[in-house]
């Protein structure tokens, strides 16, 4: 089966994984059956160091809610991965598209928080 071409941008301290200081952008190939979680595994990104993760402009994770890893990657997909320490105030994301898993989690833990780090969440 043909691989998918994926573009990845990593922001903040995790950029070190690809040799960057605060920013790293790369192209890579993934199996056509791969999901977002597979990409994170392949890049060996420590999940406890991520905050916001986007897949094709859809918000998948926020700080403290790292839960959307079963979204399928498409050929030409772009993934944006932010390290911890980033901010995105609620008023500036109110209404943005989110993955189904993140939408459900936010309904459970509170939509309006600025960060979820330290929040006691159930697995």
């Amino acid at each position: 089966m043909q691989n998918h071409k994926i573009n990845v941008a990593i922001y903040g301290k995790l950029a070190r994984i690809s040799g960057g200081r605060h920013l790293a952008i790369m192209d890579l190939e993934m199996p056509s059956s791969a999901h977002l979680g597979d990409l994170l595994d392949q890049l060996e990104i420590p999940i406890d160091e991520t905050s916001y993760i986007f897949l094709d402009a859809v918000l998948c994770d926020v700080p403290g809610l790292t839960i959307t890893h079963d979204e399928p990657l498409k050929d030409g997909s772009h993934v944006g991965i932010f390290s911890q320490g980033y901010m995105w105030p609620y008023q500036y994301r109110d209404g943005m598209p989110m993955s189904p898993a993140l939408t459900a989690a936010m309904k459970k833990y509170g939509v309006m928080r600025h960060t979820y780090t330290g929040l006691k969440t159930e697995d």
């Binding site: 901010m87 995105w88 500036y92």
Partner: peptide, 12 residues
């Protein structure tokens, strides 16, 4: 300006 890449990734 920490917001630039985030808002861009979000398509906003």
């Amino acid at each position: 300006n920490v917001l630039m890449n985030i808002i861009n990734e979000a398509g906003g």
